[in-house]
């Protein structure tokens, strides 16, 4: 479904990604892990169209999206839940969610998805009239993920959902993601919480200093010596 071919990317004169190749098949739950500054977020931002690639190609459903602007990529079915969340802080939860379905033409489909989201995240329904900027960190993360789901995406790119969350909220966020995968949404997850991530994902790529150094099924990765030393602290 998503294929990065020898992708080079970065900001102005600073190249961050070097020759990154990875694939995500339909229905898969894939993790991209690595240390701070390895280029994980840059990878997702490049796919989402917020950063222009310097070389290589990005294929989504067989079509190249490397030169497409971010809003077109979003409308094609790729939803990026950024680390900074990028919520509309002066709008209510409900308005944020409806904007998530901006590209959805039919009003009925929008409202159906909204109902479904409220079922999935009852917390958001309780706070639907609250301004997004006044919610707690965990609730805002939920809202960002929920907003990302409003467009009924086929691929979700989720950037560090556990960052700054207390453990039980992290658990909530992860189980929400698992639920999504069960419903057939494909997810590429960037995470620092390597242990939990390898437990829930199918496959994982390890990105170090802008290059993919290793990949394989998550369970195998967990047993790998390098991963254990560098990320799991065993």
């Amino acid at each position: 479904m998503l294929e990065l071919k020898n992708l080079d990317s970065g900001y102005d004169f600073l190249q961050v990604l070097w020759d990154v190749s990875l694939t995500v098949e339909k229905g898969e739950f894939v993790a991209l892990i690595g240390p701070n500054g390895a280029g994980k977020s840059t990878t997702l931002r490049t796919v989402a169209g917020l950063v222009k690639p310097m070389g290589g190609d990005i294929l989504f459903k067989g079509e190249s999206i490397r030169n497409k602007p971010a809003h077109i990529i979003s409308r094609m079915g790729i939803s990026y839940v950024s680390e900074a969340l990028n919520l509309f802080t002066d709008m209510s939860v409900r308005e944020n969610l409806l904007l998530g379905a901006y590209a959805v033409k039919e009003k009925e489909t929008q409202l159906e998805t909204l109902d479904y989201i409220f079922e999935l995240f009852p917390r958001l329904q309780e706070r639907k009239d609250q301004l997004a900027g006044t919610m707690s960190g965990g609730e805002r993360k939920m809202l960002a993920i929920a907003r990302g789901m409003m467009s009924n995406p086929t691929l979700m790119l989720v950037d560090e959902p556990s960052l700054g969350l207390q453990p039980n909220l992290t658990y909530d966020v992860f189980s929400a993601l698992l639920k999504l995968v069960k419903q057939g949404v494909t997810i590429l997850l960037v995470e620092q919480n390597v242990n939990a991530t390898l437990d829930i994902t199918d496959r994982a790529y390890i990105l170090e200093q802008g290059r993919i150094v290793m990949d394989g099924p998550s369970q195998e990765m967990k047993a790998n010596q390098h991963v254990q030393n560098a990320y799991l602290g065993i």
Partner: peptide, 10 residues
């Protein structure tokens, strides 16, 4: 309110 967020929702 948020240009990046706006682009991300299409």
């Amino acid at each position: 309110q948020d240009e990046t967020g706006a682009q991300l929702v299409g």
